[in-house]
Amino acid sequence: MNLSEFGIENMKRLKFCLLAECNKMETLIDGEMHDERNEDDQSESDAGSAEHVLESLEYLSSYYMKNLWSIWRGPNRCGCMSRLKFLALHACPQLRHIFSHTLIENFVNLEEIIVEDCPQVTGLVSHASVKPKM
């Protein structure tokens, strides 16, 4: 259903991610799922890794994801995807918004966004009250 099922701690050094035809995937990262796991068996190293989810990721591309409706679900993480430079979303018919209003602050290195054949996308940010400085 999402990349979180593989264990975010296993993706600390992941730089490139290409997802294609994962038709059951609804969201790429489920921050709420990660929080629930950490409540049960949280150690100091787990807490540190929770704050920097996919911090090394530079390239993210998704193709033909028929049930994908969000990139991120759950609370914002400091440093999450902060090195992302390239984001491409192709043929994701259920996707509505690319960024949440809290997560967009992390995308300081983003250089290119491609959104193609995603007919439900109505905006890049999912909340109207984005801070003016952004």
Rank of each mutant, 00 (worst) to 15 (best):
S70C: 12
V108Q: 12
E5C: 13
D30W: 02
L84D: 00
E21F: 02
E58Y: 02
N106R: 04
N106A: 04
E55G: 07
V115W: 07
C118N: 02
V125N: 03
G7D: 05
S129T: 08
E58V: 06
L84N: 03
H52I: 11
E9W: 04
L110E: 04
I114W: 06
M1S: 15
F6Q: 09
Y63V: 01
A88D: 07
K133E: 15
T102Q: 13
D41G: 13
L103E: 14
N38P: 00
H90W: 11
Y64I: 05
K66A: 09
E44D: 13
T102H: 13
T122Y: 02
H34R: 12
S100D: 08
Y64D: 09
T27A: 11
D117R: 11
S56Y: 08
A20N: 13
Y64L: 09
E36I: 11
L103I: 11
S43E: 12
M33T: 07
Y63S: 05
L68H: 03
T102N: 13
E116S: 13
N38L: 13
C22Y: 00
C80Q: 07
L28D: 01
E21W: 00
S4Y: 03
E21Y: 04
I71T: 08
H101Y: 09
H127F: 11
N2E: 10
L124F: 15
F86P: 01
N106L: 03
G123V: 04
N76C: 12
L89D: 02
P75G: 08
E116Q: 13
M25I: 11
E21G: 04
A88W: 06
Y59A: 03
H34S: 08
Q120K: 14
D35I: 08
L95E: 00
N23F: 08
L84I: 00
S70K: 10
G123K: 07
K133A: 15
C78P: 10
S45L: 14
C80Y: 04
F99G: 05
D46R: 11
